[in-house]
Amino acid sequence: MATVWVPALLRDLTGGIERAQVAGATVREVIDSLEAQFPGVRARLCEGDSLRPGVAVVVDGAVSRQRLRQKVKEDSEVHFIPAITGGAG
């Protein structure tokens, strides 16, 4: 199962745990699995059917542009981190 590093601001939903082992072949499925274990996670990470604009997903060290559609392997590491910003625009 993939290892998900739980964002610090979501650890109130996961009982404080920093990492979780979850099933899923895509980031979308990983979030579904997280939601099943820790209700409320999906609403914090997603907006409608997309990852929130301010959230970046990193799979195995690479920031994914596929986002929810990104493939995840059995031994993958998945991180949800604040998206890099340059300015307000």
């Binding site: 610090a8 601001l9 650890r11 920093e18 609403a43 914090r44 990470l45 929130r52 959230v55 604040p82």
Partner: peptide, 22 residues
């Protein structure tokens, strides 16, 4: 204030609080 998808209740100038913890 947005804290990873959770909005504060009061009007504010603090648009977002981000946290990283290891």
């Amino acid at each position: 204030t947005d804290e990873l998808g959770e909005k504060g209740s009061a009007l504010t100038n603090v648009a977002a609080h981000h946290q990283t913890k290891k």
